[in-house]
Write a protein that binds this DNA or RNA. Sequence first.
DNA 1: GGTGGGATTAGCT
DNA 2: GCTAATCCCACCA
Length: 199
Amino acid sequence: MSKRLGESFYRRDASVVAPALLGKVLVLQSDQETMRARIVEVEAYLGERDEASHAFRGRTLRNDVMFGPPGHIYIYFTYGMHFCMNIVTAKVGEGQAVLLRALEPLGGIAAMIERRQTNAITNLCNGPAKLVQALGLGRSDNGRSLLGAQMWIEDDDYRPQVTASPRVGISKAVDLPLRFFITGSEFVSKPNKSRYNVP
DNA sequence: GGTGGGATTAGCT
DNA sequence: GCTAATCCCACCA
């Protein structure tokens, strides 16, 4: 029996929501297909007090969605070619968010393979930009709600063991243990060990 | 008005 | 291991 997560789930600190999201199932419903994927790796970004957060320098056009209501998605463009997806948390104006870093594909896999141009299931959603591509999301999805009829996250009572580590790919606040992943999952991302000293 | 670097990835050596 | 790909924004002048 799966239950959809409501606004109150998201309206808490990102450091609380992030580990709580592990094991939950993201569902995307379109006319063509239904995609389902279990969240296996996330990172918390704590808003204006977090040097590594896009919200650190206050509200701008780019990060506007982060300062809006919780339960919406913030998608940003980076490195000239990639998009990454966050879930806005905490209260309006706090600028907190949880970055989705890896998912375990459960349904709609054919569509993901088509978009990712690879057959390996473990290579479909094992990175923040990969999962956005696999799900077919982009710039125009910035600000969409997870509380509506097309897109939501549900709890199917799966309760994974969780490991915490420093966040990947940042240059400020590098020691805070705000990356969380399902212990031993083969679907987590594989950070470059020569650049990032994380498990 | 110019510029440095980025919450990354894939492909080559 | 190294680096190209390629756009945007924050920051400095």
